[in-house]
Write a protein that binds this DNA or RNA. Sequence first.
DNA 1: CGCTGCCTTGACCATGGTCAAGGTGCGTGG
DNA 2: CCACGCACCTTGACCATGGTCAAGGCAGCG
Lengths: 247, 247
Amino acid sequence: MNGHIMQPALNLETIKVACSNCNLRELCMPVGFNVDEMKRLDEVVEKRRRVKQGELLFNSGDTFTSLYAIRTGFFKTCVTSEDGREQVTGFQMAGEIIGMDGIVSDRHNCNAVALEDAEVCVMPFATVEDLSRELPALQRHVHKIMSREIVRENSVMMLLGNMRAEERLAAFLLNLLQRLHARGLSQSELVLRMTREEIGSYLGLKLETVSRAFSKFSEDGIIEVKQRYVKVLEPDALKKIFNPQTY
Amino acid sequence: MNGHIMQPALNLETIKVACSNCNLRELCMPVGFNVDEMKRLDEVVEKRRRVKQGELLFNSGDTFTSLYAIRTGFFKTCVTSEDGREQVTGFQMAGEIIGMDGIVSDRHNCNAVALEDAEVCVMPFATVEDLSRELPALQRHVHKIMSREIVRENSVMMLLGNMRAEERLAAFLLNLLQRLHARGLSQSELVLRMTREEIGSYLGLKLETVSRAFSKFSEDGIIEVKQRYVKVLEPDALKKIFNPQTY
DNA sequence: CGCTGCCTTGACCATGGTCAAGGTGCGTGG
DNA sequence: CCACGCACCTTGACCATGGTCAAGGCAGCG
């Protein structure tokens, strides 16, 4: 609601199209490069692309050509089954890389939709591959990013397979806050960029259940909710819900 | 039950420790190499390792050093939450690669347990990285394998988030059969290598629910079940359960 | 100012979880 | 070779979680 918790609050005009002087570099690119390597790294970003709220960055079935590093904005990725059911597979924010689902079949396997106006760095995958043959640190980084996604999905499977509604929402909020905090934002306040229905789709719940869980946390004094604004009053209580064995 | 549906029925004695003359090459390695490149490829397999039924190939927390290509046998991978809940994240069979969860943090993030006596090719990841800087086809292959795992996990998320018990089991059976068929085994018969509880953990269901779903399919004449032996009598009916909109 | 999209809440219900009892088949040791 | 024990599976009865359906509220926008 108020300025200091809007995420992310980056001024586009001050940013040049180059990884070497990008303030998100540490989030989306490997560290420990010398100046020369840094220059080479700038080659991977072909251009920037703006995506308006509600628009698709890529669609399931599109030919895969590039990975995308999110500069600003917020995305969701979804898969759709043949009979039309939609599953949100992730929410991505500045500094994160999307599009890796497309590598295996040269076609994207999910949609990426901007949940707010966004800007991404387009990184043609052929260039990424060429360069990562020359720069072992880049190669290692690409492998790590994909591995991280595999590990993230493992924990979503745990969430969907084993957790109850309130545990899922607690885990979701803690994860979002942790990622926002890593970007210099508050550890306790956030503005959700997605609807209750999108949260529910991600968590394997209906929107009413998500809403009820929010209300429950609010009644219990654990959080303060007003529409999409959420403030965590009792982080330990949230963690306890998420992981009841602790304590 | 009878010989021709046992999986996999490979004679270890006839196999040399080299990708270049491995009968699973097409499943776990890229195609289109010339003889020279093929020779180089053999370098990635450091050695073979046998894992007895019930033993761990790697444990969550172990230092990550290698990927493993399954030669023979059948594995499950599991993640365990802090409070001890276990989630089976996948079942892997001959020709599939496991261990990619370890790349991001240099530690394995899940367990891999042999569900039957198994043999794997140990591929030190440092070697894989070195060689894939020289062989673009290998590089591309490594990327595809990881992307494939991401896409697989996306569809598990769909399954866990959106499907009902019987749909999950139908999808599971169809997926297993399709993979076994790709290995030259029957399209309609299989012997499950995992318990009802393990199936349930993978599918986000309790073992009783899995058992009931098997019984239901059996009553409906869609499959024939006897303990771990399953024969699909009506594949179309199974597909219809899995994807009710079709037809 | 009214429309629209999103959210909340209540009442009811269905799916699948829990608990319990008993069955089946296999491996081991007598 | 048989018997026992164990691990795994099946089935029933009951119950809880979360889904469904419905009504109404709130906030932002044209």
